[in-house]
């Protein structure tokens, strides 16, 4: 029955609503409606921002979010706030979840309503307080933006790692160098390698000046400078993050105390007292040539030989370091070597 279907089609087309919908294509408005929970691109309210960087640390997408600072003007300082790049944002809402301000700087769907005690922040740095160095001035307590992250318990200042957002404000406010430590917890193996490079090159540089050092008297101090360019280049080839490298350089130069043992064969009377005392077996007596030999590879720098020897064959010196100014580009390590104050002679 082809004829009847043709008539049916003509009849259908003749209906006004059909013809209209045929001519003007449109989609139902309901498709653009989104439910309440829909996570659109995050909204930023710059006025609440405390510039802690929690959002940038939490963001799983590499290009999505960054902190920017508006320019200073006459009345007030520039405001720092996060900017979302829609082309990189994956709309996970994690930045809104970790934001510690109240009210939230970033909102996203309903994710910013998630209870605060469940917010988890993946951090690159961990801040700990060294109780030995802490002077309990409580400046960090005032500087901390998050309530309950730094607390005082039994006259000790403690950082609660589950609440800490790793903003670093406490570190800036602390008047004692080293009392608060910001530890990079990522790239541990790479950090170890860099520390090895620094310590080895410092040791080599002191080894080169051995001649000068061995003539030092008890209250003389020997100073010289070391350029760090070569070390920095080698460190950069291991790890690309300049912040971490500078942090390692500063920590190493602040805390490292190199002990140096010198050996003056001419003074030796072959008494062999040191041979038995040496805990690592680094000192041996060679019968055929009648000399006492010291193996630098085995030496622990424990200073026992220095304290044992009645003739002053072994010399014992301590080297300390300072990176000044603290920068990778024009920093220089100042090295100070002086004789140890340990008592001499076996008692």
């Amino acid at each position: 029955m082809p004829m009847s279907s043709v008539i049916w089609y003509l009849y259908e087309f003749a209906r006004k609503s059909w013809a209209e919908s045929f001519a003007i294509a449109k989609t139902n408005p309901e498709i653009v409606e989104t439910p309440e929970r829909f996570r659109d691109f995050p909204q930023v309210f710059p006025e609440y921002c405390i510039a802690c960087g929690a959002c940038t640390a939490a963001c799983p997408a590499p290009n999505a979010i960054k902190l920017i600072r508006s320019e200073d003007n006459a009345e007030e300082e520039g405001q720092t706030y996060p900017v979302i790049n829609n082309r990189g944002c994956i709309r996970c809402g994690f930045c809104a979840e970790v934001c510690p301000t109240d009210p939230k700087t970033i909102t996203c769907g309903e994710n910013h309503l998630i209870r605060e005690d469940f917010t988890i922040l993946p951090t690159e740095r961990m801040f700990v307080i060294d109780d030995y160095l802490c002077i309990r001035c409580k400046k960090c307590l005032k500087a901390c933006q998050v309530e309950g992250a730094i607390t005082e318990e039994d006259n000790k200042i403690i950082i609660d790692q589950s609440k800490c957002i790793a903003c670093g404000n406490c570190l800036d406010s602390c008047p004692v160098k080293g009392a608060i430590k910001g530890i990079y917890i990522a790239h541990v193996q790479e950090q170890k390698d860099i520390i090895k490079i620094i310590v080895n090159s410092l040791e080599e540089s002191i080894e080169d000046k051995r001649e000068d050092i061995s003539h030092l008297s008890d209250d003389e101090v020997y100073k010289f400078d070391l350029n760090i360019d070569v070390m920095v280049d080698r460190a950069r080839s291991i790890l690309s993050d300049d912040d971490i490298i500078l942090d390692i350089f500063q920590k190493v130069t602040d805390r490292l105390k190199l002990r140096i043992v010198t050996w003056d064969d001419e003074k030796c009377n072959r008494c062999q007292l040191c041979v038995n005392e040496c805990p690592s077996g680094a000192i041996t007596y060679n019968k055929e040539e009648d000399v006492v030999e010291r193996d630098t590879e085995k030496c622990l720098r424990c200073s026992i030989c220095y304290q044992t020897c009645p003739f002053g064959v072994a010399g014992y010196y301590i080297a300390r370091f300072l990176l000044d100014p603290p920068s990778l580009d024009d920093g220089v390590i100042h090295i100070t070597v002086k004789a140890s104050q340990l008592p001499i002679g076996a008692d």
């Binding site: 439910p35 929970r37 829909f38 996570r39 994956i90 709309r91 979840e97 994710n111």
Partner: peptide, 21 residues
């Protein structure tokens, strides 16, 4: 799915320890 989790495809709904909302 969108009603419950907030997104149609990549839901971002699970975390270690439960669900987000």
């Amino acid at each position: 799915i969108e009603l419950l989790t907030g997104n149609r495809v990549n839901m971002g709904w699970n975390v270690v320890g439960g669900v987000r909302m």
